[in-house]
Design a protein around this nucleic acid. Structure first.
Lengths: 140, 140
DNA sequence: ATAATTGCAAACACTTTGCACCTGT
DNA sequence: ACAGGTGCAAAGTGTTTGCAATTAT
Protein backbone atom coordinates (compact mmCIF):
# COMPACT_ATOMS: atom_id res chain seq x y z
CA UNK A 1 0.00 0.00 0.00
CA UNK A 2 1.01 3.56 -0.71
CA UNK A 3 2.47 5.77 1.94
CA UNK A 4 0.34 8.55 3.35
CA UNK A 5 1.81 12.03 3.40
CA UNK A 6 0.78 14.40 6.10
CA UNK A 7 -0.86 17.21 4.22
CA UNK A 8 -2.79 20.27 5.22
CA UNK A 9 -5.97 18.86 3.71
CA UNK A 10 -5.65 15.55 5.46
CA UNK A 11 -5.17 17.24 8.80
CA UNK A 12 -8.10 19.53 8.21
CA UNK A 13 -10.43 16.65 7.58
CA UNK A 14 -9.25 14.72 10.58
CA UNK A 15 -9.49 17.82 12.74
CA UNK A 16 -13.05 18.33 11.61
CA UNK A 17 -13.98 14.80 12.53
CA UNK A 18 -12.39 15.22 15.95
CA UNK A 19 -14.46 18.34 16.46
CA UNK A 20 -17.58 16.33 15.71
CA UNK A 21 -17.17 13.21 17.79
CA UNK A 22 -19.61 10.42 17.13
CA UNK A 23 -21.29 12.30 14.31
CA UNK A 24 -22.02 11.03 10.88
CA UNK A 25 -20.79 13.35 8.22
CA UNK A 26 -21.30 13.18 4.50
CA UNK A 27 -18.76 14.12 1.89
CA UNK A 28 -20.98 17.02 1.00
CA UNK A 29 -21.02 18.35 4.54
CA UNK A 30 -17.26 18.18 4.65
CA UNK A 31 -16.91 19.98 1.35
CA UNK A 32 -19.13 22.74 2.65
CA UNK A 33 -17.39 22.99 5.99
CA UNK A 34 -13.82 22.78 4.81
CA UNK A 35 -13.03 25.69 2.66
CA UNK A 36 -9.50 24.81 1.79
CA UNK A 37 -10.19 21.32 0.50
CA UNK A 38 -11.54 20.46 -2.91
CA UNK A 39 -14.36 18.04 -3.50
CA UNK A 40 -12.15 15.50 -5.21
CA UNK A 41 -9.71 15.58 -2.36
CA UNK A 42 -12.44 15.15 0.21
CA UNK A 43 -13.60 12.00 -1.54
CA UNK A 44 -10.10 10.68 -2.01
CA UNK A 45 -9.16 11.34 1.58
CA UNK A 46 -12.37 9.85 2.87
CA UNK A 47 -11.71 6.65 0.98
CA UNK A 48 -8.18 6.56 2.19
CA UNK A 49 -9.08 7.18 5.81
CA UNK A 50 -11.64 4.39 5.70
CA UNK A 51 -9.00 2.04 4.33
CA UNK A 52 -6.65 3.07 7.06
CA UNK A 53 -9.28 2.51 9.69
CA UNK A 54 -9.50 6.09 10.91
CA UNK A 55 -13.07 6.41 9.69
CA UNK A 56 -16.04 4.17 9.23
CA UNK A 57 -18.25 4.38 6.25
CA UNK A 58 -21.96 3.73 6.31
CA UNK A 59 -23.55 3.19 2.98
CA UNK A 60 -27.09 4.01 3.75
CA UNK A 61 -28.86 3.87 0.44
CA UNK A 62 -27.90 3.77 -3.16
CA UNK A 63 -28.10 7.21 -4.61
CA UNK A 64 -27.93 8.79 -1.21
CA UNK A 65 -24.83 10.15 0.36
CA UNK A 66 -22.57 7.86 2.35
CA UNK A 67 -21.83 8.87 5.92
CA UNK A 68 -18.46 8.79 7.61
CA UNK A 69 -17.73 8.59 11.29
CA UNK A 70 -14.50 9.05 13.15
CA UNK A 71 -13.47 5.80 14.74
CA UNK A 72 -10.41 7.06 16.52
CA UNK A 73 -8.65 3.87 15.57
CA UNK A 74 -10.62 1.71 17.99
CA UNK A 75 -14.16 0.45 17.84
CA UNK A 76 -15.21 0.36 21.46
CA UNK A 77 -18.81 1.32 20.81
CA UNK A 78 -19.82 -2.02 19.37
CA UNK A 79 -23.08 -2.00 21.24
CA UNK A 80 -24.92 0.70 19.44
CA UNK A 81 -27.03 0.52 16.38
CA UNK A 82 -28.22 2.93 13.78
CA UNK A 83 -31.74 3.76 12.82
CA UNK A 84 -32.57 5.88 9.87
CA UNK A 85 -35.80 7.62 9.11
CA UNK A 86 -36.85 6.91 5.57
CA UNK A 87 -38.82 10.10 5.50
CA UNK A 88 -36.59 12.89 6.77
CA UNK A 89 -33.42 10.90 6.16
CA UNK A 90 -31.92 11.53 9.57
CA UNK A 91 -29.77 8.92 11.23
CA UNK A 92 -29.93 8.17 14.95
CA UNK A 93 -27.88 6.11 17.37
CA UNK A 94 -29.63 3.75 19.72
CA UNK A 95 -28.68 1.38 22.45
CA UNK A 96 -30.71 -1.72 22.07
CA UNK A 97 -30.50 -4.64 24.42
CA UNK A 98 -33.15 -6.38 22.35
CA UNK A 99 -30.94 -5.98 19.32
CA UNK A 100 -28.13 -7.70 21.13
CA UNK A 101 -30.51 -10.54 21.79
CA UNK A 102 -31.21 -10.69 18.08
CA UNK A 103 -27.50 -10.94 17.47
CA UNK A 104 -27.32 -13.83 19.92
CA UNK A 105 -30.29 -15.52 18.31
CA UNK A 106 -28.84 -15.23 14.83
CA UNK A 107 -25.56 -16.60 16.03
CA UNK A 108 -27.15 -19.64 17.62
CA UNK A 109 -29.74 -20.41 15.02
CA UNK A 110 -27.91 -19.53 11.86
CA UNK A 111 -24.30 -19.20 12.84
CA UNK A 112 -24.59 -15.67 11.54
CA UNK A 113 -22.41 -13.04 13.17
CA UNK A 114 -24.18 -9.72 13.14
CA UNK A 115 -22.05 -6.70 12.40
CA UNK A 116 -23.70 -3.83 14.19
CA UNK A 117 -21.47 -1.25 12.59
CA UNK A 118 -22.74 -2.09 9.14
CA UNK A 119 -26.37 -2.49 9.96
CA UNK A 120 -28.94 0.23 9.69
CA UNK A 121 -32.55 -0.21 10.72
CA UNK A 122 -35.07 1.70 8.67
CA UNK A 123 -38.36 3.16 9.67
CA UNK A 124 -40.18 6.36 10.54
CA UNK A 125 -39.00 8.62 13.34
CA UNK A 126 -41.33 10.13 15.90
CA UNK A 127 -41.34 13.59 14.40
CA UNK A 128 -42.22 12.42 10.95
CA UNK A 129 -44.85 10.12 12.35
CA UNK A 130 -46.39 13.02 14.28
CA UNK A 131 -46.34 15.22 11.27
CA UNK A 132 -48.41 12.50 9.74
CA UNK A 133 -46.49 13.35 6.66
CA UNK A 134 -47.02 10.78 3.98
CA UNK A 135 -44.66 12.46 1.60
CA UNK A 136 -41.91 9.93 1.50
CA UNK A 137 -38.58 10.63 -0.05
CA UNK A 138 -39.09 8.30 -2.97
CA UNK A 139 -39.42 5.30 -0.73
CA UNK A 140 -42.63 3.62 0.01
CA UNK B 1 -53.82 7.96 -3.74
CA UNK B 2 -54.03 7.98 -7.50
CA UNK B 3 -55.59 5.19 -9.36
CA UNK B 4 -53.40 2.77 -11.24
CA UNK B 5 -54.22 2.01 -14.81
CA UNK B 6 -53.43 -1.36 -16.21
CA UNK B 7 -50.91 -0.61 -18.91
CA UNK B 8 -48.70 -2.70 -21.11
CA UNK B 9 -45.56 -1.45 -19.36
CA UNK B 10 -46.88 -2.14 -15.92
CA UNK B 11 -47.80 -5.68 -16.89
CA UNK B 12 -44.43 -6.25 -18.50
CA UNK B 13 -42.59 -5.29 -15.37
CA UNK B 14 -44.78 -7.39 -13.13
CA UNK B 15 -44.47 -10.31 -15.53
CA UNK B 16 -40.71 -10.03 -15.42
CA UNK B 17 -40.70 -10.12 -11.65
CA UNK B 18 -42.93 -13.15 -11.66
CA UNK B 19 -40.52 -14.85 -14.01
CA UNK B 20 -37.73 -14.19 -11.55
CA UNK B 21 -39.17 -15.23 -8.24
CA UNK B 22 -37.21 -14.31 -5.17
CA UNK B 23 -34.61 -12.46 -7.17
CA UNK B 24 -33.35 -8.99 -6.53
CA UNK B 25 -33.46 -6.88 -9.65
CA UNK B 26 -32.16 -3.40 -10.21
CA UNK B 27 -33.80 -0.70 -12.27
CA UNK B 28 -30.93 -1.05 -14.70
CA UNK B 29 -31.48 -4.76 -15.16
CA UNK B 30 -35.12 -4.15 -15.84
CA UNK B 31 -34.37 -1.44 -18.37
CA UNK B 32 -32.03 -3.81 -20.15
CA UNK B 33 -34.43 -6.73 -20.05
CA UNK B 34 -37.60 -4.91 -20.98
CA UNK B 35 -37.32 -3.54 -24.41
CA UNK B 36 -40.64 -1.84 -24.61
CA UNK B 37 -40.35 0.18 -21.42
CA UNK B 38 -38.43 3.40 -21.07
CA UNK B 39 -36.04 4.15 -18.26
CA UNK B 40 -38.23 6.83 -16.75
CA UNK B 41 -41.20 4.53 -16.77
CA UNK B 42 -39.25 1.75 -15.14
CA UNK B 43 -38.33 4.05 -12.28
CA UNK B 44 -41.80 5.47 -11.97
CA UNK B 45 -43.41 2.07 -12.00
CA UNK B 46 -40.89 0.67 -9.55
CA UNK B 47 -41.68 3.42 -7.08
CA UNK B 48 -45.33 2.93 -7.56
CA UNK B 49 -45.21 -0.81 -7.14
CA UNK B 50 -43.23 -0.42 -3.93
CA UNK B 51 -45.88 1.97 -2.62
CA UNK B 52 -48.58 -0.47 -3.55
CA UNK B 53 -46.78 -3.30 -1.81
CA UNK B 54 -46.23 -5.43 -4.88
CA UNK B 55 -42.47 -5.02 -4.64
CA UNK B 56 -39.97 -4.53 -1.90
CA UNK B 57 -37.02 -2.28 -2.24
CA UNK B 58 -33.65 -3.10 -0.75
CA UNK B 59 -30.41 -1.30 -0.64
CA UNK B 60 -27.74 -3.92 -0.97
CA UNK B 61 -24.11 -3.17 -0.54
CA UNK B 62 -21.57 -3.71 -3.24
CA UNK B 63 -23.52 -1.74 -5.77
CA UNK B 64 -25.10 1.65 -5.58
CA UNK B 65 -28.27 0.60 -7.30
CA UNK B 66 -31.36 -0.23 -5.31
CA UNK B 67 -32.78 -3.72 -5.71
CA UNK B 68 -36.39 -4.68 -6.05
CA UNK B 69 -38.01 -7.97 -5.23
CA UNK B 70 -41.45 -9.28 -5.98
CA UNK B 71 -43.42 -9.74 -2.82
CA UNK B 72 -46.26 -11.69 -4.32
CA UNK B 73 -48.79 -9.01 -3.63
CA UNK B 74 -49.05 -9.47 0.11
CA UNK B 75 -46.85 -7.57 2.48
CA UNK B 76 -48.29 -9.01 5.64
CA UNK B 77 -45.29 -11.17 6.46
CA UNK B 78 -44.09 -8.82 9.13
CA UNK B 79 -42.36 -11.67 10.86
CA UNK B 80 -39.39 -12.14 8.66
CA UNK B 81 -36.23 -10.18 8.23
CA UNK B 82 -33.29 -10.21 5.92
CA UNK B 83 -29.71 -10.83 6.75
CA UNK B 84 -26.95 -10.36 4.26
CA UNK B 85 -23.45 -11.72 4.40
CA UNK B 86 -20.98 -8.97 3.71
CA UNK B 87 -18.47 -11.51 2.53
CA UNK B 88 -20.20 -13.81 0.09
CA UNK B 89 -23.01 -11.36 -0.53
CA UNK B 90 -25.83 -13.84 -0.08
CA UNK B 91 -29.11 -12.72 1.34
CA UNK B 92 -31.08 -14.88 3.78
CA UNK B 93 -34.53 -14.71 5.26
CA UNK B 94 -34.96 -15.29 8.95
CA UNK B 95 -37.80 -15.55 11.38
CA UNK B 96 -36.98 -13.55 14.43
CA UNK B 97 -39.28 -13.01 17.34
CA UNK B 98 -36.48 -11.11 19.02
CA UNK B 99 -36.51 -8.68 16.14
CA UNK B 100 -40.10 -7.90 16.85
CA UNK B 101 -39.07 -7.09 20.37
CA UNK B 102 -36.56 -4.66 18.93
CA UNK B 103 -39.34 -3.03 17.01
CA UNK B 104 -41.30 -2.68 20.22
CA UNK B 105 -38.34 -1.28 22.06
CA UNK B 106 -37.65 1.31 19.41
CA UNK B 107 -41.26 2.32 19.38
CA UNK B 108 -41.38 2.82 23.11
CA UNK B 109 -38.04 4.44 23.61
CA UNK B 110 -37.73 6.54 20.52
CA UNK B 111 -41.14 6.62 19.00
CA UNK B 112 -39.48 5.04 16.00
CA UNK B 113 -41.55 2.74 13.84
CA UNK B 114 -39.36 0.02 12.41
CA UNK B 115 -39.99 -0.97 8.82
CA UNK B 116 -38.92 -4.56 8.56
CA UNK B 117 -39.28 -4.69 4.83
CA UNK B 118 -36.62 -2.06 4.35
CA UNK B 119 -34.18 -3.32 6.89
CA UNK B 120 -31.32 -5.63 6.15
CA UNK B 121 -28.99 -6.88 8.86
CA UNK B 122 -25.39 -7.26 7.84
CA UNK B 123 -22.80 -9.67 9.10
CA UNK B 124 -20.90 -12.84 8.34
CA UNK B 125 -22.68 -16.07 7.54
CA UNK B 126 -21.63 -19.39 9.02
CA UNK B 127 -19.92 -20.65 5.91
CA UNK B 128 -17.79 -17.59 5.47
CA UNK B 129 -16.94 -17.58 9.15
CA UNK B 130 -15.84 -21.21 8.92
CA UNK B 131 -13.75 -20.44 5.93
CA UNK B 132 -12.01 -18.02 8.26
CA UNK B 133 -11.85 -15.70 5.36
CA UNK B 134 -10.93 -12.20 6.49
CA UNK B 135 -11.21 -10.67 3.07
CA UNK B 136 -14.18 -8.43 3.55
CA UNK B 137 -15.72 -6.85 0.56
CA UNK B 138 -14.74 -3.60 2.16
CA UNK B 139 -17.01 -0.84 1.13
CA UNK B 140 -16.06 1.18 -1.85
C1' DA C 1 14.77 13.79 -6.48
C1' DT C 2 10.67 11.47 -6.60
C1' DA C 3 6.50 9.52 -4.85
C1' DA C 4 2.22 11.10 -3.23
C1' DT C 5 -1.31 14.61 -3.26
C1' DT C 6 -4.07 18.38 -4.99
C1' DG C 7 -7.50 21.12 -7.80
C1' DC C 8 -10.22 21.55 -11.62
C1' DA C 9 -13.49 20.16 -14.63
C1' DA C 10 -15.31 16.66 -17.14
C1' DA C 11 -17.03 11.99 -16.79
C1' DC C 12 -19.97 8.62 -14.43
C1' DA C 13 -23.83 5.95 -12.51
C1' DC C 14 -28.27 6.12 -10.72
C1' DT C 15 -32.48 8.52 -10.34
C1' DT C 16 -35.84 12.31 -11.05
C1' DT C 17 -38.43 15.67 -13.75
C1' DG C 18 -40.69 18.86 -17.41
C1' DC C 19 -43.32 18.55 -21.13
C1' DA C 20 -45.99 17.16 -25.11
C1' DC C 21 -48.30 13.21 -26.63
C1' DC C 22 -50.71 8.67 -25.89
C1' DT C 23 -53.89 5.26 -23.34
C1' DG C 24 -57.21 3.24 -20.06
C1' DT C 25 -61.61 3.84 -18.01
C1' DA D 1 -63.70 13.49 -21.89
C1' DC D 2 -60.42 13.16 -18.57
C1' DA D 3 -57.41 11.07 -15.11
C1' DG D 4 -53.50 8.77 -15.53
C1' DG D 5 -49.32 6.97 -18.12
C1' DT D 6 -45.45 7.24 -21.40
C1' DG D 7 -41.10 8.53 -23.85
C1' DC D 8 -37.47 11.56 -24.43
C1' DA D 9 -33.92 14.16 -23.10
C1' DA D 10 -32.32 17.28 -19.83
C1' DA D 11 -31.38 18.09 -15.03
C1' DG D 12 -30.04 16.44 -10.46
C1' DT D 13 -27.27 13.98 -6.97
C1' DG D 14 -23.35 11.80 -5.28
C1' DT D 15 -18.96 10.06 -6.57
C1' DT D 16 -14.83 9.14 -9.55
C1' DT D 17 -11.08 10.22 -12.74
C1' DG D 18 -7.40 12.29 -16.09
C1' DC D 19 -3.92 15.35 -15.90
C1' DA D 20 -0.69 19.05 -14.99
C1' DA D 21 0.90 21.50 -11.10
C1' DT D 22 2.18 21.27 -6.26
C1' DT D 23 3.92 19.41 -1.91
C1' DA D 24 5.92 16.02 1.53
C1' DT D 25 9.62 13.08 2.42
Amino acid sequence: MKESYKTKQREEILAFFRQHPGQHLTAGQLCAALDGVSKATVYRLLDRLVQEGALRRYTLRGGQAACYQYSGGHSHCQEHYHIKCTQCGRLFHVQSPAMNRVAGELKEQQGFTLDSSMTVLYGICRECAEKGDTTTKSDG
